[in-house]
Design a protein around this nucleic acid. Sequence first.
DNA 1: GACATCGTGTACTAAGTAGTACACACTACA
DNA 2: TGTAGTGTGTACTACTTAGTACACGATGTC
Lengths: 118, 118
Amino acid sequence: MSAPFGEFIRQRREILREEDPTFSVRQVAQRIGVEPSFLSKVERGEAPPPSEAKILALAAELGEDPDVLLALAGKVSTDLQEAIRRRPELFAALIRELRDMPDHAVLRLVREVRDGNW
Amino acid sequence: MSAPFGEFIRQRREILREEDPTFSVRQVAQRIGVEPSFLSKVERGEAPPPSEAKILALAAELGEDPDVLLALAGKVSTDLQEAIRRRPELFAALIRELRDMPDHAVLRLVREVRDGNW
DNA sequence: GACATCGTGTACTAAGTAGTACACACTACA
DNA sequence: TGTAGTGTGTACTACTTAGTACACGATGTC
């Protein structure tokens, strides 16, 4: 039972701490608005990942991509979920179509949509 | 406080019932594996929508699109969520890019990806 | 040697999720 | 007139989520 979320944030926090001692469990916990013991447990995988709101605060604190942290926590951002729920057939079809395609193909698609040439 | 999910399935069930009397609350409930009183409450919005598994069974039973029913229930299929979680940056970027585009644009994209010409 | 800070162990909780179990009153029909 | 089927009200429960509160011993530091 590895706890990828906890391991990841502990590692990131310790790295930041080498440069800045305010990245202790206690102080980071306080900045994101949880009890130190809770963050400690989360990092060690003894407690499940916190709520989306706390994960977003943690992402900002650690300078990480919020969607990546949410993914490690087994979650998907509620704003993405809402976009899908608004047009379920369309987005379901698209995601299932892209699911098995290689990264570079999906990335190319993202770029082309962004640039408008498609 | 409208309960879109409940209202929708009640309407669909009653329509099917006009042709087939086995589409009663009790019998549908039994076929999808819940207590009749629970399905009754769900349809009247007195209980929140059931779990994803029951919603999928209900979709099959009523001949509706599972993703649409899940969306009405405020959920997103776990297999779509998993696809997103595997490549969070890519899918997050794509969905946010498409979020504000009109249906026809997204639909065209789905078709082009499906046909491979893009 | 007092004081601050550190990570963590233990105990607890309030709210939400996903239902079950059973009884009741009503309707159709044979 | 009994029997089968209908929808629904009430009461209850086990599990999960998302944490808090507080105490403890270790470490550093002045």
